[in-house]
Design a protein around this nucleic acid. Structure first.
Length: 459
RNA sequence: GGCUAGGUGGCAGAGUGGUUAUGCAGCGGCCUGCAAAGCCGCGGACAUCGGUUCGAUUCCGUUCCUAGCCUCCA
């Protein structure tokens, strides 16, 4: 089997092959920690969590997802709230990790922080200056875009079009408007570090170049992030890393996820139309949110809506419904392999919608099987397949009845069901139906099955 | 204006040069005391106009429309 991934640089799907056989290095641009993560920020975390898991089946994987903890917006938040920067970043790093955890995102192998890699950044900048790819001017250090002839290759942008004016900041210390900041001076009240160019702080792009080199090496296999990072962030990283490494390939595969929108408009912090993961997980199971994020292909746009969540919840109802009332023997479950159709879909550029459709084919197969041993085998395959996407791994009974969401306690529900069944046994269907109506009006739906009556909350 | 992606049945959303996924919703049947769940079946789609082809939703081009990037942003 072969893994295919779409590469932004080549604009096509390519066969994935790590530089070193059996070992994959992967870097994902993580959050800037000045606020809670919104659901759009969660998309790359979830999507590339699935990818990391998929790769781990076949390779040793070293997965780094950074934390940007030095940034103008963090400084602004500190000024605004009067709280120290460390307190703000510590708080939102924890919140980010907790929120992603609620969505079933496993921690990356390495979570490097920008402030802990200032020395590496300075070292890289010095190298760029020494080799003529960057210049110091007026307390700043700038990357000289003209010195890198392939600049613009990732975003397919013509440097000549990056003209001065409203689009690109013009500053007197720049040789050319498109030159970008590697290092900038800091004021006494803002965070700063001693450097050959005076007390200052790093520009935005240099941190990822320095941290990926330190933790993953000069050439990494996969560099991932949101589509909006293609330009300028990744274009600039590509330029500075390539130049600092004597022309060696920086990232062998570039992966970018599409955007989340609401009402066909991009969700973004600057527009203010954001839904925070922190709030959503209070009322919606993280699994439902995770499935919603995986219901469209990762490179396609995804419009967030209540309908999407409703539909995702119903998909999980169907999967858990099939798994309910099956007691899986431990070794059957543990030895189960995912269905090849599901695996193949995911290994084809992470085609999660296709994988889900194959998952539902397994559900149907399970539902129409009567024989217990066969059912167990199908259920185990279904579970192992769903595990590839990190969904439906919980207890089915808990899914349907863990939280009644109604005023009736589980004991009272059971009592009404017993009373109804007594009436049914006595063929007093008027009373039986009255009991069922009573349950239904309390948000409880009952199902008479071969092994007795079960119930679930109505959504 | 430049550059990228897209436009698929009531909705969501894959995919394919000829056999029309999957989930939800709808319809019919089976099961059930009746339901629910499940199973079986049905209907209904490939924005537009041209071109290539024996044949295009799928390839090429036109037009229209949508979103994103070009500035901090996943």
């Amino acid at each position: 089997m072969t893994i295919y991934l779409h590469d932004t640089l080549q604009r096509r799907k390519v066969v994935f092959e790590p530089l070193q056989a059996g070992r994959v290095t992967m870097y994902l641009c993580g959050p800037t920690v000045y606020n809670y993560a919104h659901i759009g920020n969660a998309r790359p975390a979830v999507v590339f969590d699935v990818l990391a898991g998929l790769l781990r089946r076949r390779y040793e994987v070293i997965f780094a997802r950074n934390i940007t903890d030095v940034d103008d917006k963090i400084n602004a938040a500190s000024v605004e709230t009067g709280k120290p920067i460390d307190e703000i970043t510590a708080r939102f790093i924890k919140a980010y990790n907790d929120d992603m955890g609620a969505l079933g995102v496993l921690p990356p192998d390495i979570q490097p922080r920008a402030t802990e890699h200032i020395a590496e950044m300075i070292e890289m900048i010095e190298k760029l200056v020494a080799d003529g790819f960057a210049y110091a001017a007026d307390g700043h250090v700038l990357f000289d875009v003209a010195a890198f002839d392939r600049y613009g290759q990732l975003s397919k942008r013509d440097v000549r079009e990056l003209i001065a004016g409203a689009r690109v900041e013009v500053a007197p210390y720049k040789r050319a408007p498109q030159d970008f900041v590697l290092w900038k001076p800091s004021t006494p009240e803002l965070p700063g570090w001693t450097s050959p160019w005076g007390r200052g702080r790093p520009g935005w792009h240099i941190e990822c170049s320095a941290m990926s080199e330190k933790h993953l090496g000069r050439t990494i296999d996969i560099h991932a992030g949101g589509q909006d990072l293609v330009f300028p962030h990744h274009e600039n990283e590509l330029a500075q890393s390539t130049c600092a490494h004597g022309g060696e390939v920086f990232a062998r595969h570039w992966l970018h996820n599409g955007f989340l929108s609401m009402d066909s408009t991009k969700m973004s912090k600057s527009l203010g139309n954001v839904l925070l993961v922190h709030d959503l997980v209070k009322t919606i199971p993280g699994e439902v949110i995770r499935l919603a994020l995986l219901s469209a292909h990762y490179r396609q746009p995804l419009d967030w809506s209540d309908d999407l969540l409703e539909s995702s919840r119903k998909m999980l109802d169907r999967i858990y419904g099939a798994l309910r009332n099956i007691q899986l023997v431990a070794d059957v479950r543990e030895s189960a392999e995912p269905a090849s159709a599901v695996l193949a879909a995911l290994e084809d550029d992470l085609n999660t919608p296709k994988a889900l459709s194959e998952l539902f084919n397994l559900v149907r197969q399970l539902n129409k099987t009567d024989e217990t041993g066969q059912r167990m085998a199908h259920a185990a395959t279904l579970l192992a397949s769903a595990a590839l996407m990190g969904i439906a791994q919980g207890d089915a009974e808990v899914w349907f009845s863990g939280n009644t969401g109604s005023d009736l306690s589980a004991d009272n529900i059971r009592r009404l069901i017993d009373e109804r069944n007594a009436a049914r046994a006595a063929k007093d269907f008027a009373i039986a139906d009255a009991k069922r109506d009573e349950l239904q009006s309390a948000g409880i739906i009952i199902e008479d099955g071969p092994s007795g009556t079960t119930w679930r909350r109505a959504n």
